[in-house]
Write a protein that binds this DNA or RNA. Structure first.
Lengths: 225, 225
DNA sequence: GCATTTTTTAATGTATACATTAACGAATGA
DNA sequence: TCATTCGTTAATGTATACATTAAAAAATGC
């Protein structure tokens, strides 16, 4: 229990957190419109903190505030998905290179290794939910090791934007056996301090993932997730 | 005169615009603290629209909202500068590659050429202000041609974060003769549809710029701009 | 004199009343 | 009937009053 759990958090930050959850879970569906007053009522607070939360969510690319038409939960098209994967590909590859050059010792890279182990276990047990969570964790930890705080923030934002869509495609994709080999190869390169290889392997990894998922969306005519 | 000039714009968007201007111009200095009520009074409006603008500015990384201590105009350190240039380097290089692959015709690339000409003229006349504006325009147009709207947004945000610092260093840097050659080389590669070269040349260009400017900041102990 | 508690104060956080305005629909006229 | 104008309405935008709370100041005890 952290300090924040005891003291009451601000309505504004609660609104932000709960709205994000409602968006990620699909309870506020992609493309749906919502009035400030409705959201406020359903969250049991006044419009003020809800408005503030919506402003932040707009900045994070999760909603569009469209005066007098309600707030729209931003839908994701295959083109959006391609844009986002391209960005993640570049920035994470740089992070991988930076992590390799940082010269982390074995202990510092332990969490990354643990996460890869988790992914392998999840794969063996055919638990795609667990695999997806671990995959997320891998990319987050990689970016953290890169040491560029702004890349962390941007990568987080981009991941949030594709979260819903990834959930949908998770069970449509072929079993991502190759992913784990890639992840291990990236870790090995980072251990060796081989920045070029780390970046190159990770770049290829993300590019391949982009191709698979964008084609999946297009094939199934999933134009608005 | 656009349509928006006749009808009254919302106080909130006015606050956003004016606060940005005050930050970029240095009238709200780096690291300085300001109360919502003071800002509201100086802008001649109530706290509500100012609060909303500040929330957006926080999302753009221009201020830190620190309850009960006032809003701090976010200062920029050499490390911050390095982070930002690294991100711009990667994303703009991708944009250059994408622009090359898009197969734009001569007319579509005309604006980019015009901007390069402006930079050369500014350089001949030793007008660094004009050069800096054109340089900004070059990078913005390049990213636009890349066709990834999220990269446009991120690049804009990163540029905004370094705007003040660039202003300070503008007159300390050696005359950027090399820049124009680089820009022309990028344009040529885009014309030819040579994505690899476009990305590689631009990457080297931005890396070099990063090195120069970060060393400049460190040498002069400009730790908080 | 110094540490600790209590009180005060000043700033933010929230609710609410009100102002504004874009969208909708009814009324008007050709 | 249709286009246009004018009101109506419902939603957002803004101001303001009030609640909350962290920090500063004052009081207390040792």
């Amino acid at each position: 229990m952290t300090a924040q759990d005891t003291r009451t958090r601000s309505s504004s930050s609660q609104a932000l957190e709960r709205l994000r959850e409602l968006i990620f879970s699909g309870q506020l569906g992609a493309g749906s419109d919502h009035l400030e007053s409705e959201l406020a009522e359903s969250l049991g607070m006044s419009r003020t903190p809800v408005r503030e939360a919506l402003l932040v969510l707009e900045g994070q690319g999760l909603v569009d505030v469209r005066p007098r038409k309600g707030v729209r939960i931003r839908p994701l098209s295959p083109t959006d998905m391609a844009e986002i994967y391209d960005i993640l590909t570049e920035l994470e590859s740089l992070a991988a290179a930076n992590a390799a050059e940082a010269g982390y010792d074995r202990a510092a890279l332990e969490p990354l290794e643990q996460i890869i182990n988790q992914m392998e276990m999840a794969l063996e047990q055919n638990d795609r939910g667990a695999w997806a969570r671990a995959d997320d964790a891998f990319h987050a930890e990689l970016v953290r090791l890169g040491g560029n705080s702004r890349i962390e923030g941007i990568a987080q934002m981009m991941s949030d934007q594709v979260r819903r869509a990834r959930l949908v495609t998770l069970h449509m994709r072929p079993v991502p056996t190759r992913s784990n080999e890639d992840h291990r190869a990236v870790l090995t390169a980072i251990r060796k301090g081989d920045a070029d290889t780390a970046a190159r392997v990770h770049h290829a990894h993300r590019s391949a993932a982009k191709k698979v998922i964008v084609e999946l969306l297009e094939t199934h005519h999933l134009n608005s997730l």
